[in-house]
């Protein structure tokens, strides 16, 4: 088998953002389920948090191919 260690590194680096995205949406769903009228307040916050976490994962993806 041939391959590059960069992609193994990317796989490891994707664990953190993966967990983070899961936790963010878990908290969002929890909040909306407890208090449906809070949805419009929570939605931008949830998506901004998602964007922050996802940016790190995409960083890993780009660097895995560039470095």
């Amino acid at each position: 088998m041939t391959g590059t260690l960069n992609l193994v590194g990317y796989g490891l680096a994707a664990i953190g953002p993966g967990l983070a995205v899961g936790m963010i949406f878990a908290a969002y769903i929890n909040g909306v389920a407890r208090q449906p009228e809070a949805r419009s307040v929570l939605q931008p916050i949830a998506f901004l948090g998602f964007a922050m976490a996802e940016a790190l994962a995409l960083f890993g993806l780009v660097l895995a191919f560039v470095l």
């Binding site: 931008p44 998506f47 901004l48 922050m52 940016a55 995409l58």
Partner: peptide
């Protein structure tokens, strides 16, 4: 990444 996050905030965070 910073510019994209700013754009996301402009479009979805406001």
């Amino acid at each position: 990444a910073g510019a994209a996050l700013y754009l996301v905030w402009l479009r979805f965070g406001r």
